[in-house]
Design a protein around this nucleic acid. Structure first.
Length: 374
RNA sequence: GGAGGGGUGGCCGAGCGGUCAAUGGCAGCAGACUGUAAAUCUGCCGACUUCGCGUCUACGAAGGUUCGAAUCCUUCCCCCUCCA
């Protein structure tokens, strides 16, 4: 296969691994910040790297609309274009099949979107999605799928999943194998174990460089999500990386790692950075709240990020209230840094076979809640 | 001195006889956000409150007209513009 995955160690179902791509290696379990439109919002590429992130996401749909895949290719590919020399994974546009429901028409062959930017029409098929990702020069290409919405009847979930499976196979045929580049299949089937099993089998038979679990964290709740992981993950090939798409809160990630997931992505740390939501060792904070107004303490007293090293909650609160760009920058930086701290902790714990203790301490700290008010 | 325009809830600003505790926006107080239509969105925002289309006090001040006034009239106070 063209994308190497080394399994370095395990602790229970949790795995410590390494994915080798054409643009560098990724230590897993890994969190991948979202750089949907060719930028991790509010962050310089170098700053993203400094948080510890080794790989970022791009998005087929967004880059297709602006600036256009062919233009990115002509300018040397996405790595050069956005100045991110490390590995890149791109989503296929499958999430937009769900999130842009009112702006698209789905048929068996593909999806026609109306652009949210200007109303222009754009067609995405499994082949075109793969082709765009080739043009972007992404290291890890995702199959074009339909992210099944929640809630959903089993029959509808089955239809949706089977369509995604047909598309996965078409994508596999369209994918051009190259050393250091890989294609991931995406397991669908909502929360129905039989559908997940069917989907996992179809994908394993086709053969992919990695297996993603899609259609979760769409409203079903953590308990159902974990249940679905419990039944789905054992059906995935053990020698390939597993990627839980769109997840999640730190506690979601920890629980999923414990169940054998290797890769994650989520908008929360970056979006939260722009909407005053801070993720910390002691839970979540809304820095817009008046109680931070006079607080000289950092967002997270244990954090080594620039925001926590040099700035008070009061200052961040002020920046956010005044809509200063620096507020979004610093808080995004903090959130990404904290997420990477969690991943570093998880990797270390698996290596030392102490994941249970690590998780107990993590949960304990989260449950303590925020620092006392001053 | 003359002519004209205006004073509305923390601020800006609609309303110009009833359906007005009074549109909007801002500020304020909270909430949401999970493969990013997101530096976005939602709720609350006179007082009291059994939180209810309940009571009270309210649209510069005081009187008046009217079944009924933020809206009409009179007087007063204060602002702004223009002309001398």
């Amino acid at each position: 296969m063209s994308l190497a995955f080394d399994l370095i160690g395990t602790d229970g179902l949790a795995r410590r691994g390494r994915v080798a791509t054409a643009h560098g290696t990724v230590e897993t379990p890994a969190f991948m910040p979202l750089g949907t439109g060719g930028t991790v919002k509010a962050m310089m590429p170098q700053s993203v790297r400094e948080t510890g992130a080794e790989i970022v996401l791009g998005n087929t749909f967004h880059l297709m609309l602006q600036p256009g895949a062919e233009r990115v290719a002509a300018l040397g590919g996405l790595h050069k274009f956005m100045d991110w020399p490390g590995p890149i994974l791109t989503d296929s546009g499958g999430f937009q099949v769900m999130s842009l429901k009112e702006l698209r028409k789905l048929d068996r062959d593909g999806v026609t979107f109306r652009s949210p930017r200007d109303g222009s029409q754009h067609r995405l098929t499994p082949e075109r999605s793969i082709n765009i990702q080739h043009l972007l020069d992404t290291d890890i290409t995702m199959s074009f799928d339909e992210c099944t919405a929640w809630p959903v009847e089993e029959a509808a979930a089955a239809r949706s999943m089977r369509l995604s499976m047909v598309w996965a196979e078409r994508g596999k045929r369209a994918f051009v194998q190259r050393p250091g580049y890989g294609l991931f299949g995406i397991v669908q089937g909502s929360v129905f174990p039989a559908l997940r099993a069917e989907s996992a089998k179809v994908l394993a038979d086709i053969g992919f460089d990695g297996y993603a679990i899609g259609g979760l964290a769409v409203g079903e709740g953590q308990e159902l999500m974990f249940k679905t992981l419990d039944t789905t993950i054992p059906l995935l090939p053990a020698d390939k990386p597993r990627y839980l798409m769109g997840v999640g809160r730190p506690a979601d990630i920890v629980g999923a790692v414990q169940r054998g997931v290797d890769m994650f992505d989520c908008v929360l740390p970056t979006r939260g950075g722009r909407t005053a939501q801070a993720f910390t060792r002691r839970g979540e904070l809304n820095l817009r709240n008046a109680r931070h107004r006079n607080d000289p303490r950092p967002v997270d007293e244990q954090c080594g990020c620039p925001a926590c090293q040099s700035h008070s909650r009061a200052y961040l609160h002020h920046l956010i209230r005044s809509e200063e760009i620096l507020g979004a920058m610093l808080l995004t930086w903090h959130n990404l840094h904290y997420y990477q701290d969690v991943m570093r902790g998880l990797r270390g714990a698996i290596e030392s076979n102490s994941l249970c203790h690590w998780i107990a301490a993590f949960e304990n700290e989260q449950d303590r809640g925020d620092l006392p008010e001053i």
